[in-house]
């Protein structure tokens, strides 16, 4: 495997999206290529930063209530909208 091909597999490997044979080939390349190894580590760290630092917001209570009503038909309005629109 050359660096160009390995480069295209870096993200997929970080995300666990390679087939076992692709993964094996890719890892073999990493063993012998320092540059790709660095790139691979960088991609992993980048993913980690995004996962750790981007805040995940929760839906406000009012929204949860209104969605529950929507699917539970607790209000006449929603019933009309959903059934006959």
């Amino acid at each position: 495997m050359n660096c160009k091909k390995a480069g295209m597999l870096i993200s997929a490997s970080v995300d666990g999206e390679l087939s076992p044979s692709e993964e094996q080939e890719f890892l073999l390349h990493l063993v012998e290529c320092k540059e790709c190894r660095i790139e691979f580590d960088d991609a992993k760290k980048t993913k980690m930063i995004i996962q750790e630092k981007i805040i995940q917001f929760k839906a406000p209570d009012a929204l949860i209530v209104s969605i529950m009503q929507l699917s539970g038909f607790n209000t006449k309005e929603h019933e009309e909208t959903l059934l006959y629109e």
């Binding site: 480069g7 295209m8 870096i10 993200s11 997929a12 970080v14 995300d15 999206e17 960088d42 991609a43 760290k45 980048t46 993913k47 930063i49 995004i50």
Partner: peptide, 15 residues
Amino acid sequence: RSRLYRGRKLLRAQL
């Protein structure tokens, strides 16, 4: 695949 690869590279440079 390639968008993730290129996007992470750009992001990496930023970060």
